[in-house]
Design a protein around this nucleic acid. Structure first.
Length: 427
RNA sequence: GUGGAUGUAGCUCAACGGCAGAGCGCCGCACUGUGGAUGCGGUGGUUGAGGGUUCGAUUCCCUUCAUCCACCCCA
């Protein structure tokens, strides 16, 4: 075991069981996205470093991206996020695209960080964006999509929560406290930590930033006011819209949600597990300067990104991982002995013509071993085609779940087999 | 980048500084044309790696690597 070469730090191996879960997530993502009229797209995994340098902060690009020089000396990054790529694609064909665009994507991303719970260096992310619309109803659409997805994969509204706020509202409120624009990033960071720090620590932090004690008190009041959204025209329209949807319980106002980085311009939201065991399941919001930095005309947009790792961890903790114990095959055709290999392979191929998933045992070992293999991989049926069967033009079919065994004449194929399989799945 | 915890069989874990073990798994047999149950037998290891202390190290010390957790950061 020592000489097995180790996987790259922070990567995850998807053995068939894990791959089945990822695939299941992808299927749900696709269904939800498409049900709202969104189209799948994909960009390259490699981008020029400038694409990120234009928008993202320097530290992010320098310290948390995989960057390398290609053979021509060009500096290339493994994409750490999708939004700059989205901006690039939109800018490139801006005049001919039909807005609003509804686009979604699911693919791999890389960030050079220290791995820990729910965070790796390679992960998969669902990105979904509504581009070219600036309405609060558009914001609501994205939150509703997110909630629909959470419900679809089995989370209840008391287990996960989409917390919503609005940056313009917070800008107003902090301005009214006499906090000027250049202090705002630090204050937003402070707001973001309201429920991550103990009150005393939070107050100390606030003082360090340079807030007066009256400012701190007022800010704390603001962050405890769950009716604050009433003061925002955008949020009133947002919640009025959300209200009509059946998943409305998943979506709530939360004044401390502000999001890490600067490019959000309006509504922002994050999804959390209510027990607080994990980091956020996803985050997003409105960013009305998309395309700006890559050389196009500004386009309003709203979207979010959801990683696969935290969602999978939470599903696991709640015991909701899908039961994807399906066998790779529905039938194992055994091979009686070295004289009877070809008839078995021929039978298997016949059965495949009717759409069944058929595996054959690769070589004529003892039947007991082949049956054990069938059992281990979970095929419902095993077929034996030996000298007796060939002589009587029959096939022996064993149902591995009931243990029943049938002799089926060849002319009843493949219907008899299909009937057996359907009978099983119905019961 | 900072701090903490943990590395023993394929997996989950034991072993006051004194012969490295158990359960599960795997293989075989009972059952040479039939899996799952049962019984019996067997396979299993450079104790992450390197060094030190000691008569003797899985155990104590140092270094290193890996994993996990927290901080930082979260596009």
């Amino acid at each position: 075991m020592n000489d097995v070469i180790q996987a790259v730090k922070g990567t995850r191996d998807y053995y068939p069981e894990e791959m089945a879960v990822r695939r299941w997530l992808y299927d749900n993502i696709r269904q939800v996205s498409e049900s709202f009229g969104y189209q799948e797209w994909e960009g390259p995994f490699l981008e020029k470093i400038e694409l990120y340098a234009a928008k993202s902060g320097e530290e992010i690009v320098e310290k948390q991206s995989y960057v390398f020089e290609d053979r021509s000396g060009e500096r290339i990054a493994l994409r750490p996020e999708l939004t700059p790529t989205l901006a690039r694609l939109v800018a490139k064909r801006q005049p001919q695209l039909v807005f609003p665009l509804r686009w979604w994507s699911f693919g791999p991303f890389w960030r050079y960080e220290r791995p820990q719970k729910g965070r790796g260096r390679e992960f998969f992310q669902w990105n979904i964006d509504l581009i070219g619309d600036h309405s609060p109803e558009g914001d609501a659409e994205l939150a509703v999509i997110a909630a629909t997805f959470l419900q679809k994969i089995g989370f209840k509204s008391d287990e996960v929560n989409i917390l919503v706020n609005n940056r313009k509202l917070m800008e107003q409120k902090t301005e009214a406290l006499g906090i000027d624009a250049e202090m705002r990033p630090a204050v937003y960071k402070l707001i973001d930590r309201r429920d991550k720090l103990k009150t005393a620590d939070w107050e100390n932090y606030a003082e360090e930033i340079g807030l007066s004690s009256t400012q701190i008190d007022s800010l704390m009041d603001i962050l405890e006011n769950d009716q604050l959204w009433q003061e925002s025209d955008e949020l009133r329209r947002f919640f009025k819209t959300v209200e009509i949807f059946q998943i409305k319980d998943y979506i709530n106002f939360a004044p401390h949600i502000i999001r890490g980085l600067d490019y959000y311009t309006g509504t922002v939201f994050e999804a959390w597990d209510t027990a607080g065991d994990f980091r956020s399941l996803f985050g997003g919001g409105r960013y009305d300067n998309l395309v700006d930095d890559v050389g196009g005309k500004p386009v309003p947009a709203v979207g979010f990104a959801a990683g696969n790792l935290v969602i999978t961890l939470l599903l696991e903790k709640l015991g909701r991982l899908p039961t994807v114990g399906n066998s790779p095959a529905q039938v194992l055709v055994t091979i009686f002995d070295s004289e009877h290999i070809l008839p078995s392979l021929l039978l298997a191929d016949e059965l495949r013509q009717s759409g069944m998933k058929i595996a054959t045992y690769p070589n004529p070992v003892k039947l007991a071993k082949q049956f054990k293999y069938a059992d281990r991989i979970g095929t419902p049926l095993a077929i034996v085609l030996g000298p007796d069967e060939l002589a009587s033009n029959q096939v022996t079919v064993k149902d591995l779940r009931s243990g029943d065994q049938h002799n089926i004449p060849r002319d009843q194929f493949p219907k008899a087999i299909l009937d057996l399989l359907e009978g099983d799945s119905a019961s």
